[in-house]
Amino acid sequence: MGHTIIITVISLSLLALLAAVILYFIAQKFKVYEDPRIDEVQALLPAANCGGCGFAGCRNFAEALVKAETFDGLNCPVGGAPVMAEAAQALGKEAPVVDPLVAVLLCNGTPEQRPRTSVYDGVPDCRIAHNLYIGETDCSYGCLGKGDCVTACTFGAIYMSKETSLPVIIDDKCVACGNCVKACPRNIIELRKKAKKDRKIYVACSNCDKGGPARRACKVACIACTKCVKVCKFDAITIENNLAYIDALKCTFCRKCATECPTGSILEINFPPKKPAPEAQNETIKVNPEV
């Protein structure tokens, strides 16, 4: 009995030793050299793996950073400037200054402004609704309200508002990874430059129809009347395809366009209330409740 145990222990130990030696040599032979700096840089990154940088994940981005000669075009939107500065320091390079961005919804078609003309009872999926037909309203450009962007957001920065049936983007949580932009089948989410105090002024409409049909479908549609273009002193507003667009880089937040807009499609958010409130200016500040 004791004899058998000894033989077993010895033979198994020899076998294990043999395997260990073979494995050691194989590991040496097929060793893949990895730059140790990749691990270092990866540790600095936020590990969100959101893909906002354009790479498959944080590891992939760290590899790209180590390989890159300069940091031009490489940016981690989640970590922002501090993380990029740290990474640059670790690699002995310089990080260019990249403006932080924030996602905004280019549609303000609440049920009051944009009447529902049909009922969609299919799958609650924007892609399917968009494939199938125009949507529950007469606007073929606006938000379908089925929440693909909410599902796409891994940071919990978007939720559907019950009152407006539109997604609401929480500025503090949004890291501008761009997943919602890709998820939206109507391409109505834009990444805009973040201004101080989260101030925003933009055309909350994506309707490229002419004034008449656009206005009929939605009361707060941009009708391309060019009033905002005329009033803007900084050439920040352009009109293309019957739709006005405010260039966030040129805009100085003078708010003249929002006052001028006859339909109230230009939204101004997080501004202090104006001192005197003449006429129907308050109408233009129909804003999604900010959280």
Binding site: G122, V123, D125, R127, I128, N131, L132
Partner: peptide, 12 residues
């Protein structure tokens, strides 16, 4: 289950 809706989406 809305099989066809998703298949149409996938097909396109």
């Amino acid at each position: 289950r809305p099989l066809l809706d998703y298949i149409r989406l996938g097909k396109s």
